[in-house]
Design a protein around this nucleic acid. Structure first.
Length: 427
RNA sequence: CGGGGUGUGGCCUAAUGGUAAGGCACUUGCUUUGGGAGCAAGGGAUUCCGAGUUCGAGUCUCGGCACCCCGACCA
């Protein structure tokens, strides 16, 4: 993508009405635009990142047998009455049409997926099954906050699994948990599976996937030796105590952001809709259901909270909007400028042909300083400069966003060097 | 929903109750090209909305709305 054409207006000043790091950087860098509190539009830069996160989640869900669907966001009141959610879930967005008919906006979609799946699943032979979608969710939060971390409209992956019994649910939960850890790891994040309450609809325990960050809004207690981790709101243990699970480690308190969760739904939804299946004995049974969420847009915010410095964002290569920011610096001499321009264009096209996402800052009359500052803000993992200085030795300059040092690489080798660096960092 | 704070060109800010100012951005011309360039000229505002006090309100009062923060809440 050529910067001269690209729809991105980067500003020098952070917006006065955003205080969270993720919102300041994402708005300044023209990744998102705030429409109102907790509701953001995605500009080309932000959408690129969102799609990359989405695709990583999609790959991992597909890998464990999840089947992607896309369900309605606008729901009839009736299905929410059937499960009791209409009267009990206060974050449910309710809307009324001009004919005074009432609807709800999806905030989680058990009410849609249960009839959708179970009306087609009549025999035990059809189980197990897992379907998922990546779609917008709406929650009537009393207080939206922290940029993308708590919105009223947000992108979420929600998967629903259907099992004949508890044992099979536990089996799938273990697999899903591993997939979740792979997702977070590919995003450069470390998550902890945290025991938490099941929420209002379930008395069972749930698992929240927490990434440690001060920008989060949960307090968790975790063991420094084993995997034990529990949300403070249900914790019976206290900070500094010995871990009761492994008996060796000590418990620490930390701030964290919930970037995923898993709920054991039991038989509630099958029973609410009176939809079940026939077992081997010819008897009607209700399936055990599981629900697995990952907040895609929240993850985008969390990644920015984790990876930034005074100059801007430092995207992990796997989800960077562009892997390479190619900058051309022209000179006062027009013949020389033409030569520099051709060299930069040539490099741009060869990077693109190699399948590398590259933002080419081809703008004339923009100072080197401004181009560098913008590159640092946007946060592509690699910056390549082509200028009179580098061309004197048939070089291009390569600098990693994380590094203070740049190195000169010959033009004939820069493509391979970059391709290898990208490959290494996006495994 | 309780408490606190803030609303001024596109963005960031300034302005004892007395002609709404500056920087960034934008337009034009010239100059400039390795860390947010320089000079000159120019365009751009019902100071969030409504009422009140006053000779006069960006400024004071009341009501509303919006946004941010703390808390509560959070399938």
């Amino acid at each position: 993508m050529k910067r001269s054409y690209f729809f991105a207006h980067i500003t020098k000043e952070p917006p006065a009405d955003e205080t969270s790091v993720n919102a300041q950087l994402l708005v300044r860098g023209a990744f998102v635009d705030k429409l109102m509190a907790g509701v953001y539009s995605y500009l080309p830069l932000g959408l690129r990142v969102l799609r990359k996160i989405e695709n990583i989640v999609r790959e991992e869900m597909d890998a464990i047998g999840g089947q992607e669907v896309l369900m309605a966001m606008l729901h009839p009141k009736t299905i929410w009455e059937q499960t009791g959610g209409w009267g009990s879930i206060d974050v449910l967005f309710k809307i009324q049409s001009r004919t005074e008919k009432e609807y709800a906006l999806g905030q989680s979609e058990e009410e849609v997926v249960t009839p959708l799946v179970l009306s087609r699943m009549h025999t035990y032979k059809d189980f197990p099954l897992a379907v998922y979608q990546i779609h917008w969710k709406f929650r009537d939060e009393l207080r939206a906050k922290s940029g993308l971390l708590r919105g009223r409209e947000f992108l979420m992956k929600d998967m629903y699994s259907f099992h004949r019994d508890q044992v099979d649910f536990e089996r799938f939960y273990t697999i899903a948990k591993q997939a979740y850890f792979r997702v977070y790891s590919r995003l450069g994040l470390t998550a902890k599976a945290t025991e938490a309450s099941g929420g209002s609809f379930s008395t069972k325990i749930s698992y929240e996937f927490m990434v440690l960050t001060d920008a989060g809004e949960d307090d968790i207690l975790y063991c420094d030796t084993c995997e034990f981790c529990v949300n403070k709101e249900i914790a019976k243990e206290k900070e500094g105590e010995k871990c009761t699970r492994c008996g060796k480690g000590a418990l620490h308190m930390a701030r964290a952001s919930e970037v995923g969760n898993v709920f054991d739904l039991g038989q509630k939804y099958g029973k609410d809709f009176n939809l079940g299946y026939t077992d081997e004995k010819g008897e009607k049974q209700y399936p055990i259901m599981g629900c697995y969420g990952i907040g895609i847009s929240r993850l985008l915010g969390v990644v920015v909270e984790k990876f930034n410095d005074a100059r801007g964002i430092r995207w992990p290569a796997a989800i960077a909007p562009f892997q390479v920011n190619l900058i051309v610096l022209l000179s006062k001499d027009s013949n020389e400028s033409a030569r520099i321009s051709v060299a930069a264009e040539t490099l741009y096209h060869s990077l693109r042909s190699a399948g590398i996402d590259v933002l080419f800052d081809d703008r004339e009359h923009i100072s080197a300083g401004e181009k560098f500052a913008e590159a640092d803000l946007i946060g592509a993992p690699w910056r390549v400069v082509v200028s009179a200085k580098t061309l004197a030795g048939e070089f291009a300059e390569l600098k990693a966003r994380d590094s203070e040092n740049a190195e000169l690489i010959s033009l004939s080798k820069i493509l391979n060097t970059l391709a290898e660096a990208i490959k290494k960092s996006t495994v």
